[in-house]
């Protein structure tokens, strides 16, 4: 188990290094930052001096080295617009995004898994077809439009919920969260439901398929032969097996939730790092874009690591290795 953790940690560090190189090269390829920093009237000599003072006369691999060293110290440059360290801007908005993505994942899980289980247990019924059609619709609806329709219905039409923004936050272990109060939940409900829709469809399909598959397995037949109750067969024997793919996929999809939060945050004016990214792209605030990308990549790598470990925890065949 410890060897597994160490191996995964090493792999994660490697991926992070490669991605930082890619991001660096992409930014390096976009253009010469000197043009932005130096007065257009400056002569050749001045340009060379500024270039040297910023270390931009060094070959690209040396510059990458400086970049890595600075990144290691947590320095990804200053925002052109806000005049603050880019990394701080992104990190400040991260709790809002993680709060939104976590809420969406929970909604998708609690609405998708039981329904998928229910449909998977009656594979050829009308209700199973209905669930299949519903998940197909969920796949097809574009997130941003669903968000707008929900705003129209629940905020503008019925006036039950706010049209956007985040509720008041309170620090929880130093992290500002909005889910401590009713107002926070009222703000969170619509954006989280919007973001959850696609993953709900996915989990619905996955659970229904995995349940159908599990019910055909010999261990279910043997469990029936031992006179176990249907509740125990489904709730323990089947659920423990299908939980493995469900947890794996939910974990991996959490990254995609963070990415798609860009859209949801824009629709609902949710002050997360996705909205920051869109705003920064609009005003060409490059250091913030780079900081967002690197932090997101690091987040993805961390998520993958956690999923791998969870997987090992859930599946004894992975945890103990196969002896047979």
């Amino acid at each position: 188990m410890i060897a597994l953790v160490l191996r995964r940690l090493l792999q994660s560090a490697l991926v992070l290094l490669v991605m930082s190189l890619l991001v660096f090269v992409a930014v390096y390829a976009i253009g010469d930052p000197i043009a932005l920093l130096v007065d257009p009237q400056a002569d050749q000599h001045d340009v060379a001096r500024v270039r040297a003072s910023l270390g931009l006369d060094a070959p690209w691999w040396a510059q990458y080295g400086y970049f890595l060293v600075a990144a290691g110290r947590g320095d990804l440059g200053q925002s052109f617009i806000h005049g603050e360290p880019a990394i701080r801007l992104v990190l400040e908005r991260m709790p809002a995004t993680l709060e939104l993505a976590s809420a969406a994942l929970l909604i998708a899980l609690f609405a998708g898994v039981p329904l998928g289980l229910w449909a998977g247990l009656r594979p050829n019924s009308i209700s199973a077809r209905l669930v299949n059609g519903l998940s197909l619709l969920g796949f097809s609806l574009p997130t941003f439009w669903v968000g707008m329709m929900l705003i129209m219905l629940f905020a503008v039409g019925l006036g039950w919920l706010p049209t956007g923004g985040r509720g008041p936050t309170e620090p929880v272990f130093g992290v500002p969260l909005s889910i401590t109060g009713i107002a926070g939940w009222r703000h969170l409900l619509l954006p989280a439901a919007t973001l959850a829709l696609f993953k709900w469809s996915l989990l619905l399909r996955l659970t229904a398929g995995a349940t159908r598959e599990a019910m055909r397995q010999d261990y279910v037949r043997f469990a029936r032969a031992r006179g176990l109750s249907p509740a125990r067969i489904v709730g323990v024997h089947v659920l423990k097996n299908i939980l493995i793919p469900i947890v794996t996929v939910s974990g991996l999809e959490f990254g995609s939730l963070i990415a798609f939060a860009v859209v949801t945050e824009t629709v609902f004016a949710w002050p997360g790092m996705g909205k920051l990214l869109i705003d920064s792209i609009a005003v060409l605030d490059r250091p913030v874009v780079v900081a967002y990308l690197l932090i997101t990549v690091a987040l993805f790598v961390a998520i993958n690591l956690v999923v791998d470990l969870l997987y090992a925890l859930l599946d004894p065949r992975v945890r103990f290795g196969s002896t047979a």
């Binding site: 397995q217 261990y219 037949r221 043997f222 032969a225 323990v236 423990k240 097996n241 493995i244 004894p316």
Partner: peptide, 13 residues
């Protein structure tokens, strides 16, 4: 008791 001893027992219990 069934034929396949590999598949008869639940792998995660």
């Amino acid at each position: 008791v069934f034929q396949d001893p590999m598949a008869t027992l639940n792998p995660v219990l």
